[in-house]
Simulated scan of single mutants.
Amino acid sequence: PFIGIQFAALTAAIIGFSLNSAAYIAEIIRASIRAVDNGQVEAARSLGMNKWLTLKGVILPQATRIALPPLSNVFLDLIKASSLAAMITVPEIFNKAKIVGGREFDYMTVYLVVALIYWGICTFMSFFQDWLERHFERYLDSPKR
């Protein structure tokens, strides 16, 4: 608003969450690519692979396995932080719970239901993350589990 740009509440929330998450995601991807051993690149080059094929066939599959746990944590944090959008009047579940709690004069029950909904979504995402990690570990010589 100070420089004359105004967005709707939902647009502002999406832009804010996207920019915040993008910084973390970019750092996670950068670090996971750098974590792949340089010997892998040298081995791919010795087999005659060009840069693109080395990236696509050697580096990215290994970097994906490395990046998966922290990326999943960023997405879980994004799910939990979505309740903050209620502070700028985005009609999401927490905002609706505040309205229902005021109408029924029972905030505690409504907030407990909202907490259970967030818990269920985060639990589902955690199970999905665990499944993905096991899926990508099958290529390792000795799986962690």
Rank of each mutant, 00 (worst) to 15 (best):
R103E: 13
V36R: 00
T109F: 06
V58T: 13
F128R: 05
G16V: 02
V36A: 01
C122D: 06
V113F: 08
V74L: 12
I3E: 06
A97P: 11
P143K: 08
D77S: 14
I15D: 07
N73F: 05
A44N: 00
A81R: 05
T64L: 15
V114W: 00
A67C: 06
I5A: 13
W52H: 04
Q6T: 12
G48N: 02
G102M: 02
T89S: 12
H135D: 06
S21V: 10
P91M: 15
S142Q: 11
I33L: 05
A43S: 08
K144V: 13
I15L: 15
N73V: 07
I14P: 04
F136V: 07
C122R: 04
M125D: 05
E42Q: 13
E27V: 09
R30Q: 10
K51F: 11
Y111Q: 06
G4L: 06
R34V: 15
P69V: 00
A63G: 08
F7I: 00
G102S: 04
N73A: 12
E104R: 11
T123V: 11
L55K: 00
E104A: 14
M49L: 14
D106K: 12
N50K: 01
R134M: 03
V41T: 14
V36H: 01
A8L: 06
L78S: 06
K144H: 08
D37L: 10
A115F: 00
Q6H: 12
M125S: 12
L76E: 01
F7A: 00
L53F: 01
L116Q: 03
A35V: 08
S46E: 07
A67Q: 03
V74A: 11
S126G: 12
Y118M: 07
F94A: 04
T11P: 02
A63H: 09
D130W: 03
I33F: 10
L10T: 15
G4A: 06
S72M: 13
A115D: 03
F128Q: 07
T54I: 00
F94Y: 07
S21E: 11
I29P: 00
L78G: 03
G102W: 10
R145K: 10
F124V: 08
A85V: 15
N73Y: 02
K96I: 14
T11Q: 14
I28Y: 01
V110Q: 03
G101V: 05
M49F: 15
R30V: 10
A35F: 15
M108L: 09
A12L: 12
R103A: 15
G4C: 05
T64R: 09
N20W: 11
P69Y: 02
R134S: 04
R103H: 11
R65C: 05
S18Y: 14
D130H: 08
A44I: 07
L132V: 04
A35P: 09
S72L: 13
Q129A: 14
L140K: 13
A23D: 09
G4Q: 06
A9L: 03
A8Y: 08
R138D: 05
T89D: 08
S72K: 00
V114F: 00
V113L: 14
N73P: 07
F75Q: 02
A12R: 12
I5F: 13
I59Q: 10
I66E: 05
H135K: 15
